[in-house]
Design a protein around this nucleic acid. Structure first.
Lengths: 143, 143
DNA sequence: GTATTTAGTAATAATTTTATTACTAATATT
DNA sequence: AATATTAGTAATAAAATTATTACTAAATAC
């Protein structure tokens, strides 16, 4: 049973991959790595310190000093001291930074809505229910 | 209804994002861009020409000439002339190239199986059913 | 059938990313 | 309390990526 579920999960990822590829598309002038940083912070939905970004994206923390500084100057993110760990700095997106991501998602959203037409009404109800269930349960598993 | 489904879909992506991040982890010595190329070809599950990879990853086709050549020399992929379009070249992964991806997926699989324990039996059944449904319907939508 | 567009290759310079070493200040270990 | 580890910064050289221009051969448009 457990294996069966894990296999379904693994299959899910390529099914979503086309949407993920969409995330490469940049409207503003960001380098690939800058995009990834913004995307990473956005996806985590919380402020992150440099170490977390560094290990999450497999890039050296020394690089991040510059990358973050540039993104901060350009108004995409802000740094704030971590009160829990006084060595650390917490990075979060500004509204301007979040806007970049939202634009990408709007396109994904649009494309998806369009291909929904290929399903009949019963299938749409099923998909809605199944997606909701998956989201609820995956979230529970994270806790 | 359509909006409701699209929203569930959009929510799904961040729920899978932690798994996607895992895909950054390289066991062999590949540059980030080389990894992305291999991952992209793997995800599409078919041979691709350079243009498709180029536009899918938002990198110039001129770059790919070198990247692909290097990956070919190192045995991760092969090029074959496209019989349909004699200008084009079709790139596909060798067993060695596929192995790189499979290793990453094995880890994702393992992690997922572990966190499955946080669900009770009924939830597991539900998740299995829902994931299966989502996969079937998403695939149908692609057609 | 000629003109235009497209897929791929090639070479170069500019920019970005990576790797290395070193340092400060705060935290964790003992 | 001394010691080791960790988060972040900084500077530099090496390597990888990006941008630009130009070219060939095949496909497409007219």
């Amino acid at each position: 049973m457990k294996n069966e579920i894990a296999n379904e999960y693994i299959n899910l990822i390529p099914n979503l991959f086309s949407s993920f590829s969409e995330l490469n598309k940049n409207s503003v002038a960001l380098t690939h790595i800058q995009s990834h940083v913004i995307e990473f912070v956005y996806m985590q939905k919380r402020a992150l310190n440099l170490k977390e970004i560094s290990s999450g994206l497999e890039i050296a923390k020394q690089q991040l000093t510059n990358i973050i500084a540039d993104l901060e100057v350009r108004g995409y993110l802000v740094k704030a001291p971590d009160t829990k760990d006084k060595r650390a700095v917490l990075v979060s997106l500004t509204p301007k930074g979040e806007e970049i991501e939202r634009e990408k998602w709007a396109e994904i959203y649009g494309r998806f809505s369009k291909s929904l037409d290929r399903l009949n009404d019963e299938e749409k109800v099923d998909l809605n229910f199944a997606l909701h269930k998956v989201n609820v349960l995956l979230k529970k598993m994270e806790e």
